[in-house]
């Protein structure tokens, strides 16, 4: 039935609609650079969404946990075999994404008889020197983008733009600044997504403006923290040894979160 080109295009179009639907309730992911390194932040229920991939690489994802897990293993396998056969510095985000991950995801997306990967991926890479840090984001159809200062994942590109627009204006010099900025940006995205859910398809939330003063965002975040877990991971330039990834524990997060939020963290 898909032999005709038109039908294939139609089927791929249907996939987009189907996939867009799957991300509606997903939690956004935020990545920002700061003096200390790269911070990744999200909120999750149960399964974690931030992972260590290699010495200088970390992963944040949205979508189906089983698909994310499958791709995470692919990345880990590629990175470690490459790191073993060549060297750690040959394991770069660019190579993993361009020659490994993106073609796999694109193929699955276009093979209309098989299930696509329900994932969006953010790969953060800390450089040997400050200023060489970078991000790669991959969409469910295999398209990828490279960014340098920050990157976000959200249900739609309109929400992502909204988050990026907010993030751009915020300070992210110190680690505490970055944590505050990341969590507020997350709130901007999550709130926009939820508004679309509540008000139905017709409401183009991302286009309309919404109050983004810190106090409103903190009030929203306090409600989220009550039912979800704040996840923060850092590619820490100051860590001794080759592996730079570390998850921020509750105690450390309490000291880094804005005062308006830290008491609500348990």
């Amino acid at each position: 039935m898909y032999e005709e080109p038109y039908k294939w295009v139609e089927a791929v179009g249907n996939r987009r609609t189907y996939l867009d639907e799957q991300f509606k309730e997903g939690a956004p992911v935020v990545g920002v650079t700061c003096e200390r390194g790269i911070l990744l932040m999200t909120m999750s229920k149960g399964t974690p969404k931030l992972y260590e991939i290699y010495d200088r690489l970390a992963l944040g994802g949205m979508g189906h946990p089983a698909d994310l897990e499958k791709l995470r293993f692919n990345l880990l396998e590629m990175a470690h075999v490459e790191g073993f056969n060549r060297s750690a510095s040959d394991v770069t985000g660019g190579r993993l994404v361009k020659y490994g991950m993106a073609p796999t995801i694109k193929q699955a997306f276009e093979e209309v008889f098989k299930a696509p990967f329900i994932v969006k991926i953010l790969l953060a890479e800390i450089g040997q020197k400050a200023g060489k840090d970078g991000f790669l984001t991959i969409n469910y159809d295999g398209t990828f983008e490279e960014k340098s200062q920050y990157a976000v994942l959200a249900a739609t590109s309109a929400v992502e733009q909204k988050m990026a627009g907010y993030l751009r204006e915020q300070s992210r010099a110190s680690l505490a600044d970055a944590v505050g900025t990341a969590i507020r940006t997350w709130a901007v995205g999550d709130r926009a997504q939820r508004r679309v859910l509540d008000e139905g398809e017709g409401h183009d939330e991302a286009r309309t403006s919404q109050v983004t003063d810190a106090e409103t965002l903190y009030a929203y975040l306090r409600r989220c923290i009550a039912e979800k877990t704040v996840e923060c991971a850092l590619l820490d330039r100051h860590v001794q040894g080759p592996s730079k990834y570390r998850a921020l524990g509750v105690d450390e997060l309490k000291t880094l979160l804005p005062n308006e939020l830290s008491p609500s963290l348990s």
């Binding site: 260590e52 991939i53 010495d55 470690h80 790191g83 592996s243």
Partner: peptide, 9 residues
């Protein structure tokens, strides 16, 4: 690499 791989997977 084995120890790193185990920890990360």
């Amino acid at each position: 690499h084995s120890f790193k791989y185990f920890r990360r997977t």
